[in-house]
């Protein structure tokens, strides 16, 4: 099963340049025509499920406007980390 992920778009930085849209392998990004940022841009947003948290959008983002998360595989990572 592919990993589940999501992004947060910081509207302070996003200029709606659209570079992340064709870069997204899952094709789940689009410009949000309903929103206008304080600088007057339509920001990008996640259009639906399918994001894997691969962070390619963040790699191409010129404005460091994206924060990327992935659903944690909770138990395993925690138990490995602590006793050592």
């Amino acid at each position: 099963m592919p990993a589940k992920g999501w992004i947060e778009v910081n509207e302070k930085y996003c200029k709606g340049c659209e570079l992340c849209i064709p870069a997204c392998p899952q094709d789940v990004l689009a410009i949000d025509q309903q929103t206008i940022t304080s600088k007057g841009y339509h920001p990008v947003n996640l259009t639906g499920p399918g994001c894997t948290g691969c962070a390619i959008c963040a790699v191409v983002c010129p404005d460091a406007a994206l924060t990327v998360y992935r659903e944690a595989k909770v138990k395993k990572t925690q138990s490995v980390a602590s006793p050592a």
Binding site: K15, A55, T67
Partner: peptide
Amino acid sequence: NNATLVYERPESLTEMPTFYCPG
């Protein structure tokens, strides 16, 4: 929580948005 942070804005950038053109 149940989320792993994969990428966030680096600390070495200030909070100021750039004046650069979109893209």
